[in-house]
Amino acid sequence: MRHLIDITDLSVEEIDELIATAEDIIENPVKYQDVAAHKQLATLFFEPSTRTRLSFESAMLGLGGSVLGFSSAASSSTAKGETVTDTVRTVSCYADIIAMRHPKEGAPFAASQRSQVPIINAGDGGHNHPTQTLTDLLTIHRERGSLNDFTIGFCGDLKFGRTVHSLVNALSRYTGIHFIFISPEELKMPNYINESLQKKGLPYEETESLEEAMPKLDVLYMTRVQKERFFNEADYIRLKDTYVLDPAKLTTAKKDMCILHPLPRVNEIAVSVDDDPRARYFEQVRNGKFIRMALIMKLLDLKA
């Protein structure tokens, strides 16, 4: 039995297979509409995240399966003091597969140690969120036709952004990728990420200027710059607009660049960018459903 706790639980070959399956689902959804008939997905959300939960549920329903679960700790037995392992063991008596979100880091790993059914980590605190990474990889693959040989810029909060760390980690297993890390000094990429790139001999550069990096980029991955990450209000106000993407900043960008964002956004991408053909973040949301369909099929060993 396989679980997905961390993106590196999957080999590059397995990720490529998932992407191929997802792309086939997009082409031929009817072929897949009953593959999970009579199977049940439990969504155990110990912390609310409506968009992630809906994506999982929509994926399972798209495969002809059904869903059950809860959407916050208050409505689950954790409120009565039950441990994560016990909750998951109980639910694994009803469901065939579990997608779990939890505010504590490592909770899905703890659950996977005792579960009778596959566990998918749907986010554990600020730690991992592997299905977001798969979504990002599928989106880049669909936009570019390949996961090799391109320049990707990550912009915003690179210090605390788990989606960024996980995507860099996943991309570092492909070839010919050039990384550009765009952030204020306070929110730079942690050292251990840079060191792991150095160890693998992968080129990266760091800059504080989005304008300077823009013309080089094939992919621009935007993230939120959150107010609570700053020591003082003045720094936040000084920096927040520097990392807001608007049509003016896009004038020097490549015509075929694609803009991604894990969503939800606050103000870091101006709404006026949404109509630009390079804005792909809503497409990214759609891709999230398809890659989760492919993942559920893989973990349940279902074939179309």
Partner: peptide
């Protein structure tokens, strides 16, 4: 020692 880690909440792990 990470206060956000599940093992700091659930000591039986």
């Amino acid at each position: 020692k990470n206060p956000r880690c599940i093992t700091t909440d659930e000591k039986q792990l």
